[in-house]
């Protein structure tokens, strides 16, 4: 992907906090990143890392009790604090979102066709209902729904999970958005259906030329589709790099731990997993220093005392760690290109 030109999305110092009885809990803490036109950026993290909250904050989908600060420029327009009517016109037209659970994302009392057509007519009142239904049929065909002319008149419960997720992709690209945000798009699906949906998503992105932010916990999905990866932990980005660089030369101790925790499909018998000890931190009780310090095998005193900054290590490769200079080189053969065999 080219990195010249202006970013589609520029997030700067975004923080999101929720009010709890113990005061504000910060789910996202000072997040900054760019997404370039046509580019796929993956945001990887475990539960509670803030990866989904970040997307909901951009789109104004968080409850009013959430305290959002910082900036998010979409094609030059500020999304944070934008009035709800203007934001509604951007959502579903220029930015689309694909959610994890397609069962709750559709309204059960309207047909799939109605709901896709509504997305089209609501943003462009010159389109007639008939025309919109025809466009909906074409879109269902594009995402590989069999017999689209019949399926367009069916209700969500008549679709299987995989088909609902494809219908959601059809809806997401209905108005040719410039940015697609996919939040765990295949987590609820079986592995063979996941493969179908990821193919559909890639085709849809190609068709529209949209940039994509893929939010997931699955490093396997990321390896296949992302141009760049950002690893989140405790509400912050811990590492950011191009996909190959991140997988084959991970710098941050958390990223290394994450990659080493995954069992491999092509693994020798008797290999022992190398898990990260402990549990991810709770956003209510965030440690004073680095959020990962209590689980990190390389921690030093400074890690316990103050948070680390996200700093460039090599061109385009950033890591948040006090000890970057003294970390041992990566010696796990599984982290070397082709080292995993096959």
């Amino acid at each position: 992907m080219t990195t010249n030109g202006n970013p589609v999305l520029r997030v700067e110092d975004l923080s999101v906090a929720f009010k709890t009885k113990h005061g504000y809990a910060e789910a996202v803490r000072g997040l900054s990143y760019d997404v370039m036109p046509g580019e796929s950026v993956a945001i990887v993290g475990e539960s509670g890392s803030g990866k989904s909250v970040n997307a909901l904050a951009l789109l104004g989908l968080l409850p009013r009790t959430a305290r959002i600060t910082g900036s998010a420029l979409f094609e030059g327009e500020e999304l944070i604090g934008m009035d709800p009517d203007t934001l509604r016109k951007i959502r579903g037209r220029r930015i689309s979102m694909i959610f994890q659970d397609p069962m709750t994302a559709f309204n059960p009392v309207f047909t799939i066709g109605n709901q896709i057509a509504e997305i089209i007519t609501i943003h462009d009142s010159s389109v007639s209902d008939n025309e919109a239904t025809k466009r909906a049929t074409d879109l269902l065909d594009l995402v590989g729904i069999p017999h689209p002319e019949r399926r367009v008149h069916q209700y969500p419960h008549e679709y299987s999970g995989g088909m609902r997720q494809r219908a959601m992709i059809a809806m997401a690209i209905a108005n040719s958005p410039t940015l697609l945000i996919a939040d765990e798009p295949t987590t609820a699906l079986d592995v063979t259906i996941q493969a179908q949906v990821m193919e559909t998503l890639a085709a849809a992105q190609e068709e529209t030329g949209a940039a994509m932010v893929l939010i997931t916990h699955d490093l396997g999905l990321v390896a296949g589709v992302a141009d760049r990866v950002q690893v989140m932990y405790g509400g912050r980005i811990f590492e950011r790099a191009e996909t190959r660089e991140l997988f084959y030369n991970p710098i941050n101790p958390y990223t290394r731990g994450l990659i080493q925790s995954i069992p491999r499909l092509n693994e020798e018998r008797g290999v022992r997993l190398n898990p990260i000890p402990g549990n991810p931190p709770s956003i209510i009780r965030m440690p004073k220093g680095c959020a990962f310090s209590s689980r990190c095998e390389f921690r030093t005193q400074v890690c316990m005392d103050q948070p680390a900054e996200l700093e460039p290590v090599t061109d385009g490769h950033w890591s948040r760690c006090h000890n970057t200079a003294t970390l041992p080189p990566v010696d796990d053969p599984r982290l070397i290109p082709g080292g995993a065999g096959r």
């Binding site: 592995v191 063979t192 996941q194 493969a195 990821m198 699955d218 490093l219 396997g220 999905l221 990321v222 390896a223 296949g224 996909t243 190959r244 997988f247 084959y248 990659i259 995954i262 491999r264 499909l265 092509n266 290109p337 082709g338 995993a340 096959r342």
Partner: peptide
Amino acid sequence: LLSAVPVADPDLER
């Protein structure tokens, strides 16, 4: 099934 499982290795995966 085996071919559908994503693997966390970009060169292999692609």
